[in-house]
Design a protein around this nucleic acid. Sequence first.
DNA 1: CGAGGTCTTGAAGACGATCAACAAACGTGG
DNA 2: CCACGTTTGTTGATCGTCTTCAAGACCTCG
Lengths: 240, 240
Amino acid sequence: MISHLLNRKLEWRDEVSDEERKILNDLFVRTQDFDVDVDIATDGQRVTFSTLLLEGWAARYKTLSDGRRQITAFHIPGDFVDLHSFPLKKMDHSVLALTKCKVALAPHEALRKVSETNPHLIRLLWLSTLIDAAMHREWITGMGQRSAPGRLGHLFCELYLRLNSVDLASDGRFTFPITQEELGDALGFSTVHINRALRKLREMNLVTVSNQEVVIENWEGLVREADFDPAYLHLEHEPR
Amino acid sequence: MISHLLNRKLEWRDEVSDEERKILNDLFVRTQDFDVDVDIATDGQRVTFSTLLLEGWAARYKTLSDGRRQITAFHIPGDFVDLHSFPLKKMDHSVLALTKCKVALAPHEALRKVSETNPHLIRLLWLSTLIDAAMHREWITGMGQRSAPGRLGHLFCELYLRLNSVDLASDGRFTFPITQEELGDALGFSTVHINRALRKLREMNLVTVSNQEVVIENWEGLVREADFDPAYLHLEHEPR
DNA sequence: CGAGGTCTTGAAGACGATCAACAAACGTGG
DNA sequence: CCACGTTTGTTGATCGTCTTCAAGACCTCG
């Protein structure tokens, strides 16, 4: 089942029936592979498919007219990276493969059919775009109020829970194929400053990042330092 | 018709039939008034109604454990300020009345019924939450990359188009009942710095803010300074 | 008219950017 | 499988943006 990780994500938030699982899986007509540093979707593009990330890491980003870019989200396997393009029709930002990626494609036409026949499932998909928005709000809060180590720490807390919820992290560790430049573009800092903030987190014995791996040494301490409250991830089982 | 401004907003993006207009209007069971500085909805709250702003300005905000707050969105009449609470169930941030506000309440139960009977309408409501998310991404981009005058300028451009789309702004002017402290909490600056950035915009003959009114003196210049591209507002008529 | 909130400006200092140089890791072809 | 070039990471020094603290002006509304 191709949509296994997506099911996993939705099941954290509500009951998903066998029939719904099947409908979800049948949404995807084919898979596609992307190399590192290739756009999975591009700003301004009119799209007719939405993309589920199966393997690899991706990022949403916007480019300013002078070429600087801002990463607005990191995506991991199981994320429906441009589900929002189904109602929006046109991309208002790009999605980039940060590593080699494998994705599955769901035609908007098929999504429209689901919206006409399975209201509960469409509410769950709506929900998943709303959780993306909640992560955006948390991101804004971090950029407005948190220091560099706080922002990094918060990101690591969030990624740990998200990866853990699809069985891609445990014991406070996960692989992290993101460069310091990409971290800088995401959190609004220069690479130099990211480097120094990472050192600070290491010196505080909270997190160590090396060899493409994050090790959270002290979860409680990191949560305190980053002022992390997981409520916004809505990892709660509820009838939706 | 209570939902007149909401209709107006949706009609910018797609056809809305008379029947849909009626269904939309019937969603709302009653109105409610809020005084300045009162929460319309509160973080952590389990809600069973969603709130349409009819009159006044509101803001979404998150509070950190040390009391600092970050405003993540400004809301104007016609905005469905916590439609997202329908699938989310629980608020992950608060909504504050920045002026006296009048709102209309839509029970989640009624929204659920619409989702079962009118897929097109629910796609339009989904769309409106996705545009909120698009504004969040633009906000993140500003906080990561734009200077203080750029961020302010971008906000004024966005608000002008949004207000204009519900007939609350024209000729480059609109009433703006927001204090510099609130602007600071929104854009991630101190009030002192907001004040200086506003002066700079005035000295550049781009925008003047006084007496609770914004006057955009030079739209083209402001768009250039703020690197504003309205695509993310999706003010385009499309079958959704 | 008076009091509290809001705006404005100055001065000092912290945080983060930029520039620069070098070290380490990675990957690609010979 | 090693050599070499490129990308990524690390550290220091200098500079600019934004914060904080402080004080006074303005304005609004009971």
